[in-house]
Amino acid sequence: MATAGSADERYDITRRSSGLGRRRLTEQAFAALGVASAVVAVGILGLVLGTVLYKGFSQLSLSFFTKPRPLFGESGGIADALVGSALIVGMCMAMAIPFAVLVAVYMSEYAGPRFSRILRVVLDILNGVPAIVVGIFVFGLLVVGRGQSAIFGALSLAVLMLPMVARATQEVLEVIPRSLREASLALGVTRWRTTVSIVLPSAIGGILTGVVIAVARVAGETAPLLFTSSIAANQISGDVTNALPTLPVAIFAFSESPDPGEQAAGWAAALVLIGFVLVMNILAKVFAANRRKRLEGA
């Protein structure tokens, strides 16, 4: 194409365009920066997880899981905090999940688009309320005058969980095909039976994913529990009307302790908590993958 002459020079694709070297350099710098950022992010994760694993693993033993926290110096475990955390998170789930699913059902099955949008904004704002504010809200509403209790702790976690599960569920319900509902309604099935027997079961994978992620979040939440269930005896107890020790609050207390033995226990407790959170997140991924496979198969 480029025979000769300056007139054809600008159509000559073999000629290097002006500043190409500089442009190539910028391109390479950009790629290098991108790689470096990813390395930094993964490096931080590795650093935190590595430290927790390295410092916590040597502390783990059977008695760490079966014995309550010691009062002075003696060897002990975190069984009291494990029992407390399990009870509080369990109660929180019982309070928040049915509530959240009902809210989501109303939004996707009954509410008009306008009201549904308003509710979505309300839930997103509720989701943005800092955990510490939720803690002091429950403290002011219930704990003042009555004292701390595991029930109030569960309630404050439920306030955090409600918008997470409701939004996740509502988003899943929205993508359930209309035809499924219409087929059921056309067979003479009522609206509510359609919702309970057709819509919710086909959304179960997505709902579970949302629930599991929310449980992982609230199980590690410390701020609301500081105000509602932090002043507790270090013993295994199932009395939910009193404050119970929990894993996050125990880690918080360990981290503020000057005693190296307690700090070591803090690392081990952190390892247990991170382990739980990671398992929950992997579980969520499995649920999500199953669901995707089913949708693709259908």
Partner: peptide, 24 residues
């Protein structure tokens, strides 16, 4: 896998990050 790892970074409870922050 890198996207998953960045997501996991978000899943670390803040109290654990604080423990790491104060001690390490």
């Amino acid at each position: 896998p890198i996207a998953t790892m960045v997501e996991l970074l978000a899943a670390i409870p803040s109290v654990v990050l604080g423990l790491w922050g104060i001690l390490v």
